[in-house]
Design a protein around this nucleic acid. Structure first.
Ligand SMILES: NC(=O)c1ccc[n+]([C@@H]2O[C@H](COP(=O)([O-])OP(=O)(O)OC[C@H]3O[C@@H](n4cnc5c(N)ncnc54)[C@H](O)[C@@H]3O)[C@@H](O)[C@H]2O)c1
Ligand SMILES: NC(=O)c1ccc[n+]([C@@H]2O[C@H](COP(=O)([O-])OP(=O)(O)OC[C@H]3O[C@@H](n4cnc5c(N)ncnc54)[C@H](O)[C@@H]3O)[C@@H](O)[C@H]2O)c1
Lengths: 220, 220
DNA sequence: ATCTTTTTGTGATAAAAATCACATTAAAAT
DNA sequence: ATTTTAATGTGATTTTTATCACAAAAAGAT
């Protein structure tokens, strides 16, 4: 491994793949697989083996030459890296179609993350408890979030109220946001926001399909 | 613009931004904005103006020096590029929490895409009609999809049935898939699959947050 | 008309990411 | 023990993407 100083930097592209690796390795560990090589992880994740080895290398020498990786050990490392050991409490804003689905499922399979409270503008919904998750009115957002010390939120409000909802979240101390409304909103640089853009994904799929992939679009 | 030959290639990174541009410009057009410059689009989309101009340049000389872009014209161009003029019929597999939410909303805001049929393993659900969308049994998949000539699908089945569901879709002639189960599945190279990974998004957000962004992670 | 201002489109460059390819190291076989 | 085999970790390179910075072109002002 490189010196601490140099290895502080994890490329953005690598960071985005970490959950894929974690999930893949976790599944292997749960299946009882003890040993794996980059080539096999590649088949499972569709990520080239050289990329996998390079990515892993940012976190130390996780494997052994001529052997591969000890699954349990690598899972442990990724567990640590991704904070899977810590419970992530999540707030949800906008209890509509998607919001209700997210609450109902509530990251069932992921034992470390959980929607613990939700906020809804419509006063008919607020006050209720859905699948154990209390729905508050938006007026209560700041106090609830600071009391419960929550910093991660999902927004599932309609596009036109997206900025409004995100402003309230930021004002309530949220620093990480997942927004289901794809229109870009403005946030302070201290806040990290990511977008789920279903319409965009479909458009991109169809765009590529229309071009029949290889000949027109340069790279896979 | 470059010669036809050279300009066949649209970088992958550009393609992913096209829906963002389209949405942004469409909104402007709908608001009555007639003229826009790359700097303003940058403020609205958070994409650097140089990147925007470079991206646009792949589709011709869309703007005018010292003036900017005619909003209506550029919307028209993107409209064409993204096939927004064509109706995209979408099949959905797995009518559970998420599946039902997607059907209920059914891309309300996007007049060119629509879930027109759904498939569910649970025989209690199949046979019903939800928000106008007929729910079929999985046994009917191949015949319905070929009859309706559908090539785009969304899978919202649990992870452990993901490969099974995708296999059926591929076998039924689907070439573009959006999968809500994040575990990577194997598809023929003729099929394009994209993943929505909510858990992964949250993990990545928290990963970055833990590192407090700038000092540890190299680039924004 | 001419001049000034503005903003594009794009060469050139830099930065980031992916990939190659192999020396090195450890495992497994003999 | 020694040899053979296997797979890592990483320099080196290539490819892709982002950004700089400005000449050229058009708009608007005078
Ligand atoms: N459901 C889909 O299939 C789908 C597809 C593409 C995009 N999206 C996006 O997902 C988001 C949610 O979709 P949906 O179908 O769940 O919408 P929805 O209308 O069913 O639910 C939105 C909820 O947010 C509430 N709300 C509005 N403003 C609020 C505020 N400021 N604070 C708190 N709550 C507020 C509304 O009262 C409503 O209950 C939308 O932005 C939509 O663009 C959804
Ligand atoms: N809802 C969330 O908050 C959330 C969060 C993260 C990930 N996800 C992912 O989204 C997916 C769906 O989640 P959900 O909460 O809607 O699950 P769900 O269990 O409510 O619904 C899944 C549905 O798929 C059906 N099904 C199973 N196998 C099938 C098959 N082969 N063909 C057709 N139908 C089949 C089931 O009968 C069920 O109705 C899961 O893969 C999950 O990992 C959901």
């Amino acid at each position: 491994m490189k010196s601490e100083q140099e290895e502080q930097y994890v490329p953005k592209a690598t960071a985005k793949r970490l959950p894929v690796y974690y999930r893949c390795l976790k599944k292997l560990a749960d299946t009882g697989v003890k040993r794996i090589k980059s080539q096999e992880i590649s088949e499972l994740t569709q990520i080239p083996s050289a990329t996998i080895r390079r990515d892993f290398s940012h976190f130390g020498e996780l494997g052994r030459s001529g052997y591969g990786y000890e699954v349990d050990y690598v899972v442990e490392v990724f567990h640590e890296i991704l904070n899977v050991n810590k419970i992530i409490n999540i707030a949800l804003v906008g209890v509509g179609n998607i919001g209700k689905a997210l609450i109902a499922n509530n990251f069932r399979r992921d034992d470390n993350m959980k929607i613990t409270c939700a906020f809804e503008k419509n006063e008919e919904e607020s006050g209720k408890i859905l699948s154990g998750v209390p729905i508050y009115s938006v007026a209560q957002m700041k106090s609830v979030l600071s009391r419960e010390n929550i910093h991660v939120a999902i927004s599932t409000v309609p596009s036109e109220h997206s900025q409004e909802s995100i402003n309230m979240l930021v004002d309530s101390g949220i620093t990480s946001i997942l927004n289901f409304a794809p229109g870009r909103v403005v946030v302070p640089s201290t806040v990290d926001i990511r977008y789920i853009d279903l319409t965009g994904e479909i458009l991109t799929l169809v765009y590529y399909d229309g071009k029949l992939l290889p000949p027109i679009i340069k790279n896979k």
